[in-house]
Design a protein around this nucleic acid. Structure first.
Lengths: 134, 134
DNA sequence: CCTACCGTACTAGAACGCTATTACACCATG
DNA sequence: CATGGTGTAATAGCGTTCTAGTACGGTAGG
């Protein structure tokens, strides 16, 4: 699942084991971290985003609630949710934490398979080369 | 959770989102791929492994059933499960496939966050450096 | 004021992974 | 033959994730 909503670009995969609400929360976090969303800006409404992603509004609400708890979003009842003041540094820290964690898991998995660091390195390079991007 | 059983060394993390039965199956696959287990050898029994890993026998049975479907294990009713003939190349292929897949996911996630390939590279190096191993 | 959209809250149910427990068929061992 | 360990199967229950539906209070705009 992939869609565009306002300044956000969402890509949700409901088959990869990662809870959908976490994927939503993560992508908002990333968008704030890289400046696509700035403090004070409105985020897509619960119902609208749910409609566009073809998921349940409760799932979006849960993601937003989690971001609220992390002081990344602020609720303006009747209006919507806006990016909180000071959200950017929090999101940058979060982004690094999340990516380091995921990378760490993969490396552990590879080490368990008795591959050497060098072999893991090569696998990584090979996969990175397949992707396009800067 | 970590334990030793016969020629196998298991490390199960029931909090990382990956189903336990998949972790068990994966570790058997890896052990065969790197030669720790060879064709004809008995694998720990369902009950024994379940006891040692402090998980339910059904969960181990499910992992073994999956390996059976992949022609990696053969059931000898009343005796146990043995590594099937020709399991090794299957496991080697599986290992590469699994690791490439996982690495691909992580890279996609990082690219989504708008990091450049170079930055992702650096993060990976940094994490790999933290680990000990060959 | 009224309507429409916002967040929020609650209940109910399906699907999945896992646990707990029981039962049964099979084979090796003594 | 009897015992004990093996794989296999079935049932029931729990927690989590997600869906579905409903309802309520707040805010904006005509």
């Amino acid at each position: 699942m992939t869609c565009e909503s306002g300044k956000m670009f969402f890509q949700i995969d409901s088959t990869n084991g990662i809870p959908v609400y976490e994927q939503v929360a993560r992508q908002v976090t990333f968008a704030v971290a890289n400046g696509a969303l700035q403090s004070g800006e409105l985020v897509p409404s619960v119902r609208q985003l749910a409609r566009e992603l073809a998921i349940n509004p409760n799932t979006v609400a849960r993601a937003y609630r989690q971001l609220q708890d992390q002081n990344i979003l602020e609720s303006r009842r009747g209006t919507g949710m806006v990016i909180a003041n000071g959200a950017r540094p929090i999101c940058k820290t979060e982004r690094t934490r999340i990516l380091r964690e995921r990378i760490g898991y993969v490396i552990d998995e590879a080490l368990q398979s008795q591959l050497t660091k060098e072999e893991i390195q090569k696998l990584f390079q090979s996969e990175l080369g397949k992707k396009r991007g800067k």
